[in-house]
């Protein structure tokens, strides 16, 4: 199992570096842009905070984008949230199905390793990749604050990155379950899942009838504006997210262990 885990890590290292440096780099660029935009930001922040549902949806009614904290939450929050969820979705959706799609399954499954152990090694690899992605991105954001000479709101930042990690694990878990069903990698379905979750959160913050069901979506508990404005984190949403993650992984074990593998 250890060998399979290490091989997967090695094979996905390039994707990890590309995604983490791209998303983290974009976040870093956003942070560095703050200084040049700081002067014009006050009037803009005032205007943005009075745009009704739009302001609510993007968190600009609770945080001022004229402050580094508000700017980070609204700008970098969107970049990291979307980028991270897409990375997690792609990692999850290809991890099992690629063996059949690339016809390497017969090689892998002819070893004295049970399917359950193979699933475990691959699931562990996804988790480690997402943790590394979060750490690299977080490191770049911290560098951004340091380069600007701004004080990092450490408590909120750690909470935000932690919640993003849980969210990415949830999305990866859902896509891992999808991966266990199909012999072809469903990239479109994975990216669609990620974007649908994001869209659901935006809609949920604008449409009053959906608001009470907002906790179903993984973006609800990891929303940067909520965290950086000090709003109470919904335990219900986190519990729901963790439950979905566990159920998705259990589903992947059951489904993949029971089905025929194509050659």
């Amino acid at each position: 199992m250890r060998k399979i885990f290490l091989k997967e890590l090695k094979m996905n290292l390039k994707a990890l570096l590309i995604w983490s440096l791209s998303v983290g780099g974009m976040g870093l660029a956003c942070i560095l842009l703050y200084r040049t935009m700081e002067g014009d930001m006050k009037e803009m922040a005032e205007a943005f905070s009075h745009m009704g549902s739009f302001s609510d949806a993007f968190g600009m009614s609770t945080l001022s984008i004229a402050t580094i904290k508000g700017f980070f939450a609204t700008e970098v929050g969107a970049v990291h949230g979307l980028g991270g969820s897409m990375f997690a979705a792609l990692m999850g959706v290809g991890m099992l199905s690629k063996e059949e799609e690339l016809h390497t399954g017969e090689f892998l499954f002819s070893f004295p390793v049970s399917r359950k152990k193979i699933i475990s090694a691959k699931a562990l690899c996804i988790a480690v990749m997402i943790i590394l992605f979060t750490l690299i991105s977080a490191g770049l954001y911290v560098c951004g604050f340091a380069l600007l000479g701004e004080k990092l709101p450490a408590g909120e930042f750690v909470t935000y990155m932690g919640m993003q990690l849980i969210m990415d694990l949830e999305i990866a878990g859902i896509c891992f379950a999808i991966s266990s069903i199909f012999a072809k990698t469903k990239t479109g379905l994975a990216l669609g899942t990620s974007l649908m979750c994001y869209a659901y959160d935006i809609i949920g913050r604008v449409v009053p009838d959906v608001k009470q069901y907002l906790f179903i979506g993984p973006f609800s508990y990891s929303n940067a504006s909520d965290i950086f404005s000090g709003a109470e984190i919904q335990g219900k949403a986190i519990a729901f997210g963790i439950t979905v993650t566990i159920l998705s992984i259990v589903f992947a074990y059951i489904c993949y262990d029971k089905r025929d593998l194509s050659s």
Binding site: T104, E106, F107, S110
Partner: peptide
């Protein structure tokens, strides 16, 4: 698992991980 430890299997189509070297596949 015990059975697989004692079997040498060769499928009709030989597929491996493209990015690996032959020596790496054999060692793996």
């Amino acid at each position: 698992e015990k059975i697989m430890a004692n079997i040498g299997y060769m499928p009709s189509e030989a597929w491996f991980y493209d990015s690996m070297k032959v020596s790496e596949v054999i060692a793996y």
